[in-house]
Write a protein that binds this DNA or RNA. Structure first.
Lengths: 342, 342
DNA sequence: GTGAAAGCGCTAACAC
DNA sequence: GTGTTAGCGCTTTCAC
């Protein structure tokens, strides 16, 4: 990395002159125009990029905010990140939590390991990770992160946790289908490069619940090597496949809101009456499910509450680093609508 | 701020001992158990939070990534941030752009000014700002940011720009309605605390286009002091209001995708035939519009392309800081569907 | 086991 | 106008 000293040497001036010019305060130090140009040119030529770390350290009167790394995989629910930032903005401006600075560390599901250097180097005051794939959980279990770390979903003993009770969601849905006298049920879920543990937990709960209730349950999903332009299309294709096979169950639990919109479009388009022919429950939080005809019973994916809880826990941890790992389970309310009455 | 020296003094040991203990390497320096405990306790008691800036500066072998501030208002399109991070992850892992570190600076529309200290202090290697309100534009015009700065939407001479041609979108839609022989048109838009300039530009284009074509155009929007649980509900209420007034236009241009879903639910529920009774064009990128019955003609809000362009521009700027401001206009393709044929 | 001291790259007060 | 120098708070080597 080229520093202001390199430039100073190259141009034949002192480092402070370079500093003044490159941080836009040349006038303040009354550096001559010619020297300014020489310095600017050299900086450009040599590919100088200021080291903000050093700059910040020397800037005395700047507020020093704790830096939190927010590991983020775009395969999360597409609205979640926006919700998270919204809640953060809200809580901070209302003085509910201390100010913090969030840096996004993007990763793909299953490739969290690539962030290992940043995570293990004590580079941040805190870390937030929503590890959704088994592989990432495995990596985290075997990694020694020494700064306060909050997991979403992935229950790993040494770290703090904010999650929902995915397994119970599955069994409760199975229970509802059972009470309604359903004999057969389907479980529809999106394909992904890496099976999400949250989906897997709900799946396990649902299948176990069905088994106990004597409901004949089967999974509907696409091969992971197929690709779709979006979740709507995937839902349509999965639904079409079910119709082709001509073995519609009396109830279906769809694990993803947008997927559900696609699937429902096909079911309704083929004259399947919901809930008479088939009851539908969806996990997610897409507002469209509310105005869908018929309106759709959902288990709410509580992104707002998860965000709030996560931010709260992180803010508390900063002040007591050695604290015992906390476990916070966020509620997932059922919202009963036409597609599956209570 | 309490430093390791404060702790060292309080406990009566050297700063290096404190450093070892607090960064989890006490064993490496063979610090006695008692001293470790004393140091830990003092740190907790005194509310010590490590200064990551200093830590990073002294860590020699860490990769130094340019730090980019991403100013973000949650009032942006809810999927945009996720898309942005997804594209970033993609471009970086494919080696299309250099590695960068993104820090999120949350703000509310109209309150960008509160970020002024962070923006003007040369605290970041680059800054990205999507200023959507007039007030924030005004603030930026009068602010001297010295680091490479990319604006989305807000055209301000001294900064770089990535945007779409909002005005033309408005006029083109008016032109389509005109070609179809519409005599009257409505323009529906979401209420917001701060009128978004992008919405305002499309509005201006549309109204001017209507005026030139002799279309009688009127705006439908809610009072900014009303609040809604979500955009769907807002759309439903706006549509209901139009039905009450019993003056349906022959075409409507809806400025927001989710708002449109709510409004369309009401229109269709009241037997309004689309496009026969009323043509509909929507600006946005919600996938549901594609499977809506009838499917909805949209002008695509190209969040992916905007993100890609923005990241590209920023990466280029880092290497040539003094460059002339660039202007990149991203295409906004029309997708014609049933609600308004070409 | 422990502490002194050098250095990370930069800013800014100050001397010239 | 320009250069010297003392920090910013931390890590890490090395001497004791």
């Amino acid at each position: 990395m080229v520093s202001i000293y390199d430039i100073a040497k190259a141009v034949g001036v002192s480092a402070s002159a370079v500093s003044y010019v490159l941080s836009g305060r040349a006038d303040k130090a009354r550096i001559s125009k010619e020297k300014q140009k020489l310095i600017m040119d050299a900086a450009n030529r040599m590919g100088y990029i200021p080291n903000m770390t050093a700059r910040k350290l020397s800037l005395r009167n700047m507020p020093r905010l704790p830096e939190i790394a927010l590991c983020w995989s775009p395969e999360q629910h597409p609205m979640f990140l926006n919700t998270f930032i919204g809640i953060l903005q809200d809580m901070t401006s209302n003085g509910l939590v201390r100010q913090m600075q969030f840096t996004i560390l993007p990763y793909r599901n299953g490739e969290l390991e690539k962030l290992a250097p940043a995570l293990t180097a004590n580079y941040y005051n805190g870390i937030i990770i929503p590890p959704v794939s088994e592989q990432d959980i495995e990596f985290l279990k075997n990694t020694d992160i020494k700064v306060p770390t909050v997991m979403l979903y992935g229950d790993i003993p040494q770290y703090h946790l904010v999650t929902v009770d995915n397994y119970s969601i599955g069994t409760e849905i199975a229970g509802i289908f059972h009470r309604h006298g359903c004999r057969s049920a389907a479980l529809m879920q999106p394909a992904s490069r890496q099976m999400s543990i949250t989906v897997a937990q709900r799946t396990a709960g649902f299948l176990e619940g069905c088994r106990k209730s004597g409901i004949d349950a089967r999974e509907v999903t696409s091969l992971s090597n197929e690709t779709y332009t979006n979740k709507i299309e995937e839902g349509r294709i999965l639904a079409a496949k079910m119709l082709e096979e001509n073995t519609l169950p009396s109830a279906i639990y769809i694990q993803h809101d947008t997927l559900a919109l696609g699937a429902l479009a096909v079911f309704c388009g083929h004259g399947i009456r919901i809930p008479e022919d088939m009851e539908v429950i969806v996990y997610g939080n897409n507002e469209s499910l509310e105005i869908h005809k018929p309106s759709v019973t959902t288990v709410q994916y509580p992104t707002q509450e998860i965000s709030r809880e996560c931010i709260t826990v992180m803010a508390e941890l900063l002040d007591k680093p050695g604290a015992e790992p906390v476990r916070r389970i966020v509620e997932t309310p059922f919202v009963f609508r036409e597609s599956c009455p209570p």
